[in-house]
Design a protein around this nucleic acid. Structure first.
Length: 105
DNA sequence: GGCGTGACTTATA
DNA sequence: ATATAAGCCACGC
C-alpha cells in the first residue's frame, strides 16, 4: 500500500464532472505540490481508467500533454466536452471557469 | 544509492 | 511564444 499514488488517485477520483484539475493542483491536494511529475506518472500507469478520468487532469494552461493515452488531446477534448466543458479557440480549457477548487465533494 | 527518463512547474533568455 | 536550465519525485536498471 503506497500512500503517494493512492492519494493522487483519490484526488483525481474526486474531480467532479464538468470540472478539471491541473497536475500541480492534484499534487497539492494529494499533499505535496512537487509531485507534478509523479502525478503524471501515476496517471500514466492509470490502474483504473474508469475510476480515474485522466482526461480531467490538465496542465497549467488547461491543456494535456502530447503523450496522452487515449489517442491524443483530440480524444480528451471530446471527453471533456461530453462532461459539459467548453474549449477555447486555443484548444484549451478555460481554467478560470472550469478549474476545480478542490472544495467540492 | 546512482543514473536516466518522464502525462510537470517555474524561471530566465 | 519557444528554448533552455534547474528543481521536484518516482520507477527501472
Amino acid at each position: 500500500m503506497e500512500n503517494s499514488y493512492q492519494k493522487i488517485y483519490g484526488v483525481v477520483r474526486r474531480i467532479p464532472r464538468g470540472l478539471v484539475a491541473t497536475y500541480g493542483q492534484v499534487a497539492a491536494l494529494a499533499g505535496n505540490p512537487r509531485w507534478s511529475r509523479v502525478v503524471g506518472y501515476a496517471l500514466h500507469v492509470n490502474p483504473d481508467p474508469e475510476g480515474i478520468p485522466c482526461y480531467r487532469v490538465v496542465d497549467r494552461e488547461g491543456r494535456t500533454s502530447k503523450a496522452f493515452a487515449f489517442g491524443g488531446s483530440d480524444m480528451q477534448r471530446a471527453m471533456l466536452e461530453a462532461d459539459g466543458i467548453v474549449f477555447t479557440l486555443d484548444g484549451r480549457v478555460d481554467l478560470t471557469r472550469y478549474q476545480w477548487d478542490g472544495i467540492s465533494i
